[in-house]
């Protein structure tokens, strides 16, 4: 049970990060290898904000929640205008360019933020222990065993991620911006013909995608730490989630995030952890091999 709760925390941040990647992929049809670094930047900025404000952790946290995604989003949009737009979103060149971007962001962070993992204090954090019952001398007795506990902050992550995802869904389906994005996704030429400023939409999508990654990182950083190499794992996992979920399919992305987040914890109950990772990786790969369009993708992906 605890494993599934942990899985849900992983899934929640993963869903946000992967959603960013999925949006970029869905609308712009490019693979952003630097996505993990935007995630990392989100965590690092959260650390800077909370240490500069330095008062109550909650203020720093709220500050980071606003500042980090906005800054990262702006940076990403600038990168889009300066680099990606100029290479015309050619898929291969975009991969190289974003690998270059990855190096630049990573090294700049190493030089400014340093090589250490730095913790950010959660805005609130209390250990919630759950009781359990066992057959004792006086019949059934209640006790608090090891481990049957979680923290309030972890529950908050799940709630917050769900709220943000709902917000995103509203943005995409109920607003003009969302409509414009979906139109661009469906047919770029047609969108241009209808006077949609496709270039600006692209920059916005790229920024929004990076911002979502940063947001996921701000949420998770009080649990983990900010570190300049932290972007690699979320990048790999997001990739997997996006593909499994079906390219550009947002509900698919969420389901896949849940699946990946949960499967890891559950398989590891049965096997040695490293073997579990190997199996989980292969299972996911096999899903792709035998259902290349992803779980919810349309047949012709």
């Amino acid at each position: 049970m605890l494993a599934s709760l942990e899985g849900a925390v992983t899934a929640a941040t993963l869903a946000l990060t992967a959603m960013g990647l999925s949006l970029v992929f869905g609308v712009m049809r490019v693979v952003n290898v630097a996505h993990g670094e935007f995630y990392m930047l989100g965590a690092v900025i959260a650390w800077f904000v909370s240490t500069t404000l330095g008062t109550h952790p909650a203020i720093g946290f709220v500050g980071a929640l606003i500042v980090a995604p906005v800054l990262v989003g702006l940076l990403a949009a600038a990168a889009d205008r300066l680099i990606l737009a100029r290479i015309n979103y050619d898929p291969e060149r975009t991969i190289v360019a974003t690998i270059g971007l990855l190096y630049i962001l990573q090294q700049s962070t190493l030089m400014t933020f340093g090589p250490d993992a730095r913790p950010v204090e959660p805005p609130f954090n209390s250990r919630i222990a759950l009781p359990w019952w066992r057959q004792g001398e006086n019949g059934l007795e209640m006790f608090y065993p090891w481990g049957l506990a979680t923290t309030s902050y972890k529950l908050f992550i799940i709630v917050a991620a769900v709220a943000i995802l709902i917000g995103l869904w509203v943005l995409l389906t109920r607003t003009r911006i969302g409509l414009v994005m979906r139109a661009t996704q469906a047919d770029r030429e047609m969108a241009t013909a209808f006077g949609i400023p496709v270039e600006r939409v692209y920059a916005m999508v790229f920024g929004l995608g990076a911002g979502l990654a940063a947001l996921g990182a701000v949420l998770i950083v009080p649990v983990q730490q900010a570190h300049y190499l932290m972007g690699a794992d979320p990048l790999l996992l997001s990739f997997i989630v996006v593909i499994i979920g079906g390219l550009g399919s947002l509900p698919g992305t969420i389901i896949a995030a849940l699946l990946i987040g949960m499967s890891d914890g559950i398989i590891s109950v049965f096997f040695s952890p490293t073997l579990a990772k190997i199996l989980a990786t292969l299972v996911v790969a096999m899903v792709l091999v035998f259902r290349p369009q992803g779980l919810l993708g349309k047949a012709s992906a």
Binding site: A3, E6, V9, T150, Q224, D233, V269, A276, K277
Partner: peptide, 12 residues
């Protein structure tokens, strides 16, 4: 596993 970032699932 060295790629792990969350550990709670191992403590049980």
């Amino acid at each position: 596993p060295p790629t792990e970032t969350s550990f709670t699932k191992y403590f049980p």
